[in-house]
């Protein structure tokens, strides 16, 4: 394609030499908007946020979640892919042995520091098991304490619905526990697990 150049037009007419015509032209426009929003159909893009929520797209990268298998147990095999690829180094995993020998490993700890997270989505791409997703649609996380943003495994886990998963083989209670209670428990700040 050849180079096409367009000289921008500087408006220097008679109308532009006076203040009044443009002031009236502008007033006509703003008055139109004023009365349209006062009486007619409101063309307002503002959202009254906490009451109405903006529909986020299907691809919106929100808070992480850990998906489950059909038996209700986490899909994650603690392979450390996401921890390695994370540019913000916000994922911390500790692997543990699963009682079922056919399942090699599972995460004893899976913590994400959501304050460090940059929501790039590289962990989702790197996961070979589709165990971590960012499709929760959670747009804003606002808590009053810094500690609250340390999301542990149990908080990140999907809501477990027994009707959907018919024969749970292993619940969390069957599994070996991490050494200290605090390290595995959901944060005490009262975040719902969902």
């Amino acid at each position: 394609m050849e180079l096409k150049v367009k000289q921008v037009k500087r408006v220097d007419g008679v109308k532009e030499a006076f203040y009044i015509p443009a002031a009236f032209g502008g007033l006509r426009l703003t008055v139109k908007h004023f009365f349209r929003n006062l009486f007619g159909s409101r063309d307002v893009v503002t959202i009254n946020y906490p009451e109405e929520k903006r529909p986020v797209s299907m691809r919106w990268r929100g808070r992480h979640r850990l998906t489950r298998k059909d038996d209700g147990f986490l899909k994650c095999v603690a392979c450390y892919m996401c921890e390695t690829v994370c540019p913000a180094k916000c994922i911390h995993i500790e692997a543990g042995e699963h009682p079922d020998l056919s399942i090699e490993k599972y995460p004893v700890r899976f913590d994400i520091d959501e304050l460090r997270c940059v929501f790039c989505g590289l962990c989702v791409e790197a996961c070979p098991k589709e165990a971590i997703r960012m499709d929760t649609g959670v747009v804003a996380m606002a808590y009053s304490s810094r500690k609250t943003f340390d999301f542990t495994r149990d908080l990140l886990r999907d809501n477990y619905d027994p009707n959907q998963h018919e024969s749970p083989k292993y619940g969390d209670e069957d599994l070996p526990r991490p050494e200290s209670q605090e390290s595995a428990l959901p944060n005490s700040q009262g975040i719902p697990a969902s």
């Binding site: 703003t30 004023f34 929003n37 307002v44």
Partner: peptide, 13 residues
């Protein structure tokens, strides 16, 4: 409020 209407906003509420 009026400036909000001109600017397609909601204004203080």
């Amino acid at each position: 409020k009026w400036s909000a209407m001109i600017q397609d906003r909601v204004g203080p509420n």
